[in-house]
Amino acid sequence: MAGIGGKSGESASSAFAPIRAWLIAPTWLMIGFFLVVPVGTMLVYSFLTKEFRGGVIWEFSLAAYDRFIFDRGLFGDEPPKLELTYITIFARSIVQAAIATALCLIIGFPTAFYIATRPVSTRAIWLFLVTVPYWVNLLVRTVSMKFLVRESGPLNTFLQWTGVISEPLQIINTDFAVQLGLFYSYLPFMVLPIYASVERYDFALSEAAADLYAGKWTILRKVLLPTVKPGIIAGCILVFVPSLGAFLAPDLLGGAKNFMIGSLIEEQFKGNAGNWPFGAAASMILLSMVLIVLLFYARRQSVRAGA
């Protein structure tokens, strides 16, 4: 069985073939039983009737999805009107996640580029600095941001002390605070993939463009950006997807007015006021949106690989 000669690489790569089913089975069981089956159960629950004290009655109903789109009045005998509350929450979540992604890109791209063009010896230190906050508890980071930007917080005190502003800035409980929180939560996800693609970028291309009298920013736009685009897209998806369903940043920094999908879902499962089928339906819609984004990305990748 120990390969002497030509086919040695192959024999090692399938050395565990006889027991591979046993090796992978625990993963199949754990994720299958405790994630795939639960998502299936959630799908079923989204078509059930709500019970008033939380939980469900096993009776088929489309009420959860219906409630999303239509307002049928209290007794259901009025003509249905378009219900905008939940559509607005979803639309706001998409906009907030998109703005947070844009913020991450604006700050993250120059950072990634700067790090990737450092000498190899200092790159590791810069990367280390970017990744440390990712390892810090997300809740701790969000609470820290809340502490910093709140009305009588250190940021306002500092700005008033320096005389930049006379009245404290109202940052907390605004849309901007949520964007800032999402930005802070997921910034490393933007920097790392862009860094990886800029690091692989061959600067001879830029030099060739410069020899042909292209200006610096033209080179950036027409040569570098198209080449590192896969990294940028990966970074955008890695920030956008978790931002869409985020709970902590909107909840702690946004206050009651700036509801996002995460808070809407969470509310359906808290205490006795909840509506489980509705929460399950909202989760299914969120999951579908995320899977669509990911499928789109996977298709692009496979098209790219095929070309």
Partner: peptide
């Protein structure tokens, strides 16, 4: 899969299950 499913969806699904 656990990386792709949004955390809050995993949370809801697990609770319901």
């Amino acid at each position: 899969l656990p990386l792709m499913v949004p955390e809050i969806v995993t949370a809801v699904a697990t609770l319901i299950f």
